[in-house]
Amino acid sequence: MKPLLVLMLVAAWNAGAASDTTRAASLRLVNPYPSTGPLEISGSAPANKALRAMQAHAAPPLTDLVSRALQQSLAYALDTPVAVVRRAKRGGAEALEHVALVPDGRTLLLAGSDVIIVRNLLTGYDWRRDIKPVALIARMPNVLVGMPHGSDVRRVVESGIARSKRTLASSGELASSHLAGALFIRATGANIGHVAFNGAHSALRAVVAGEVTAAFVPLPAFLDYVRNARLRPQAIADDVRHPSLPDLITLSEAGLPSVSGAGWYGLFAPYAMPAQLINRTASIMAAEQDDARFSASMAQAGLRVERAKGPAFSNLIETDYGRWQAYLQARPEFAIPPAPEN
């Protein structure tokens, strides 16, 4: 990052935040994910069962890695302490409520597509009323692993080999890998049954053991198994190849451009935070993303840094929101509530 640019951005950010005399001494970064175990869910909403299934496969170490990276980057860029505050109760609702109620210019939310999109679709809660997108941090691609011996994903697309009865695993009900699998089945017309496992590692073990034909799993989990000769990566469900596996084709290259299914992590601010301050924060984050060390740390974890702020990030969320909504509405067991009135 260029020192002059950092100084200009920091000065602008501090000038905007300093107008709030009640602010705390440090910036707070709210993490809606637990350190261990599934998120706590309470209440009698029809979606509780699906939410429990979705959150049972969470990967806290990865989200902690992202929050630590942001903590270090923001602390360095702003020359101020950054405290990570965990608010993991009620499936992420606690974090959303906490951020919405503290519009002090010093509180930000780190959240993934599961909390912002899937959880809100299942409960009918409209996140747009309480928080604003600041910046996309990184994508979490999913990898297609397995397939019949001697075949590859191009043959699946070209010859319809997947139309015989097979099973396709995901890392969990309503995970991004589940959506990737659903898009794959729809795009290929494959006669494949979906099997949701309690975590990506369980799905990978099932592929190795021959219990399922193939699986979509998050790239971070697959990298733990990359040296296992019995696991064969077929393609990555993302728009571009990943630096950790540069020879692995994308599903778009294999003839399936509609199958992307990547999760993501982004930075959000309270709805009441002034737009000027949000823009300054997004600019600081963009400068950090240009730092090769930050990108390398994300790539090593299986993530892919991608920049989008303001309207561009909002459009990305709405696109993913629409894809999940279309899928869940076709599955009556999830009982999606009607959209809230504005």
Results as ranks from 00 to 15, higher is better:
205 R>Y: 02
69 A>H: 12
227 R>L: 03
1 M>P: 13
306 E>I: 00
80 T>C: 11
328 L>F: 00
85 V>C: 04
205 R>C: 00
15 A>P: 01
9 L>W: 00
69 A>V: 14
149 H>P: 10
43 G>Q: 03
238 D>R: 03
165 K>L: 08
78 L>K: 07
4 L>Q: 13
171 S>D: 15
236 I>P: 08
130 D>Q: 09
20 D>Y: 13
41 I>A: 01
185 I>V: 13
92 G>D: 07
15 A>W: 15
259 V>D: 07
204 L>H: 05
54 M>I: 03
56 A>C: 08
119 R>C: 00
221 A>C: 08
102 V>N: 15
102 V>Q: 15
300 Q>C: 01
149 H>K: 15
112 G>F: 03
316 L>A: 09
153 V>M: 15
35 S>Y: 10
95 A>D: 09
47 A>K: 02
11 A>Q: 02
279 N>Q: 15
136 L>C: 08
124 G>S: 04
140 M>G: 09
214 A>I: 06
30 V>G: 05
272 A>C: 05
197 F>N: 09
96 L>R: 04
60 P>S: 08
259 V>K: 03
205 R>E: 14
33 Y>K: 01
119 R>P: 00
80 T>G: 06
221 A>T: 09
274 P>Y: 07
36 T>G: 05
221 A>Y: 12
318 E>S: 08
118 V>T: 15
332 P>F: 04
305 V>N: 02
112 G>K: 01
153 V>H: 08
192 I>G: 00
300 Q>L: 05
3 P>Y: 09
24 A>R: 12
267 L>G: 06
207 V>G: 08
328 L>W: 02
183 L>K: 04
253 E>V: 05
334 F>K: 00
23 R>G: 14
